[in-house]
């Protein structure tokens, strides 16, 4: 399988042509430097993203902002947002507090990035 991706490691934004066979990256073309090659492997085999969101806090009229502590698999982004949407948080929430542990079986916790007292 052939895939076209854009390297995001620097402003050049090289267009990479990646060949994937049996779930393995076998060829990368179009990269301006070595970092592009590494990125192609990561992005085509196990793409991951940090998820950030604003989550309501009961009894408060302002939401608390949260993030996954580390990137989670890209295909779980919407499932993660769904779990966050049904959370019922109570104030106070402090920056760094775990608001949801092991989101969608990723082993990754979601933590607050601000304090709502």
């Amino acid at each position: 399988m052939e895939r076209q991706i854009t390297c995001i490691n620097c402003p050049v934004g090289c267009r990479l042509q990646v060949t994937i066979e049996n779930g393995q990256v076998t060829r990368v073309e179009g990269h301006g430097c070595k970092r592009g090659e590494t990125y192609a492997h990561q992005e085509c085999i196990a793409p991951a993203r940090m998820v950030t969101a604003a989550v309501p806090v009961a009894d408060r009229n302002i939401p608390v902002s949260v993030k996954t502590r580390t990137p989670i698999p890209k295909e779980k982004i919407f499932a993660c947002m769904k779990q966050l949407a049904v959370l019922s948080l109570k104030a106070p929430v402090y920056m760094g507090d775990v608001v949801l542990s092991d989101v969608c079986d990723t082993g990754v916790d979601v933590i607050a990035t601000k304090t709502v007292e």
Partner: peptide, 22 residues
């Protein structure tokens, strides 16, 4: 700016806006 992407140069860490400000 609750998304991540702040502080890579200064703190060598990817922070969200509120965390960088804090």
């Amino acid at each position: 700016c609750i998304h991540n992407g702040f502080g890579l140069h200064r703190f060598k860490e990817e922070l969200t806006g509120p965390e960088y400000a804090q």
